[in-house]
Amino acid sequence: MFLGIDAGSTEAKAVVVNINGEVLGMGAYRTWTDFTEAAEKAVALALANAGADMDSVKSAVSTGYGRNIQGLAKCAKTEISCHGAGAFKYFPEPLTVIDIGGQDSKIIKIGAKGELLDFKMNRKCAAGTGAFLEETSRRMGSGIGEMNALAANSTQKVELGSYCTVFSFSEILSLSRKGVKKEDLARAVYVSMVKRIMEMDTFAGKVVITGGAVEFNPVLIEIFKEESGINALVPPSPRFAGALGAALFAIKEYNA
């Protein structure tokens, strides 16, 4: 068996695959401030789901913010390569992969053979990332699931003009004072995220969206289509795409 560990800033994810790259088990655990503990718990959950133990793991690759922490895996790959590989597993053709992570968003261009062609990441700012969504949801007094449900029931389009997480909330307060409904404000938050992502780069080939933000906020896909005119694809369990990509690299490592 082969193990991929995505020690992400928000959540650690682990995926166990067989030699054919078929997923046998997955596990996730909130990172908080301890990457090692979160990764270990995610790995234990994934192995338990696969009905396996560490002794059966032939090779492991780590990725994500904590990828270089000693003891996680012998080999580390960036989340750029891993999200690309994870998305390509389900959609094996030229792709633009949009990964919306906790701390950063990435646009990853993948070639016909799954090779990494190019990538862009958000600048030193939380706009367009999961952190923007988390912070804005918290200040609106809504959990992530609630935000998704609110946005799905929006009836009127409003826009946030500011890039900044802090100033966006000031705008939300101002719009709220003017009587804009919470549902419409929630949708405006997602629209802001999508716009920031669309500013990062052009798209080529089919567009695939991965990451926790899209798994917990499926309304993002609909809003992305509305704003870009593109029907984006979503792989199964999109927040595990990076860990899956890492597991696929673990097979390559083993075969090398």
Partner: peptide, 28 residues
Amino acid sequence: VVINGDLNDLRLFSLEQTQIRLEAFLER
């Protein structure tokens, strides 16, 4: 690859973010 930073003002630079970009670039 483009990295965001500054000549002197380190508040405008993140080594962590830059590391991901550079390592991903080398993987590319």
